[in-house]
Amino acid sequence: MTSVNPYLFFHIFIVTIMLFVMGFYCIFFTFNLVRALIGVELLIKAVTLLIITAGYVTGHMALAQAIVITLIVVEVVFIVVATGVVIGLHGHNGTLDTRKLRNLKG
């Protein structure tokens, strides 16, 4: 393992935070169910990047890879179930608009 350029890690850290801002903005400012899930996916991408970088920087690359593989499996199952719920909601409401979700309150 070659020596790591510390500045590169710093840039990756900044990029991760930028992706976080995008993801949370996407979740909170959209009125579309699918787009909210896409925001969640973007956040998971940011976390994946962070874990891989952490493994590279600390020299525990193998452990980081093992973790990310499990993470990807979990992510896929999560997305499948979530899209199932979205399709079910669409079947009831006929729309993907979150503003129609007013049946329950807080």
């Binding site: 949370f24 979530a82 719920v85 079910g88 909601l89 329950l104």
Partner: peptide, 13 residues
């Protein structure tokens, strides 16, 4: 479905 979707989003966060 609505309750589940709210749970899903908050749980994802």
């Amino acid at each position: 479905f609505e309750g589940a979707f709210k749970y899903i989003i908050l749980s994802a966060i």
